[in-house]
Amino acid sequence: MLEIKHIRKSFGRNEVLKDVSLNVKKGEVVVILGPSGSGKTTLLRCLNFLEKADSGEITIGNKNVVIQNAGRKDILDLRRKTGFVFQNYNLFANKTALENIMEGLVTARKVPKKDARNIAEETLKWVGLHDKADYYPSQLSGGQQQRVGIARAVALNPEVILFDEPTSALDPELVGEILELIKKVATKGITMIVVTHEMTFAQDVADKVIFMDGGVVVEEGAPKEIFYRPKEERTKQFLAKFIIPDNMYYI
């Protein structure tokens, strides 16, 4: 369903992605873990060409694109098959919550305005913000903005939604409810790739966990394998930082 092969990306002399390949099945939830600077964001951004990788191949659904030959049309096609949820929401500042969701439907997908409005209202209700339809992003809290951000991606009904640390910018007390919402997206059967540092969440929803470090996929597998029987030393070291607090209950 989604396949990336041999993606490479450098910023100047800094090689950020070193031959990354990945396979995601339809409906699967893939969680990407890894230390800061390991290339997780860059990988997601290369998937929908917010960043143009240097080489490799991306297939989403029935669309296959070889990076070097990617034309404007290919990029647009890929983007219209993906949704993106940003770490800092990136809602359109000049649009209300409802318009934020409608914009992509109307302008990019050419959905008639009336239908787009219905879809947007329904999705807004689904994320629990039907009463905030006419609010501008500046009038919404971080948590509410991210709900709209998620609704904007979901409403487009893409083949895959990419989440880049969707809760990292939130106040701690708001993280839980957004994670719940992302779980709800997962239960809709939408294919998702989620970059996160929320380990409990990862164990809960992931069908597959990928551990990245230094621009390579170090290890991948089912959550049980990665969290309880990691094979690679780097994975163990990384997880140790997160798992210790959990064990404290048993001390």
């Binding site: 647009l76 991606a153 487009l156």
Partner: peptide, 10 residues
């Protein structure tokens, strides 16, 4: 703002 717009396919 640009990236969000590109990401919804505009």
């Amino acid at each position: 703002q640009y990236e969000a717009s590109y990401s919804v396919g505009m």
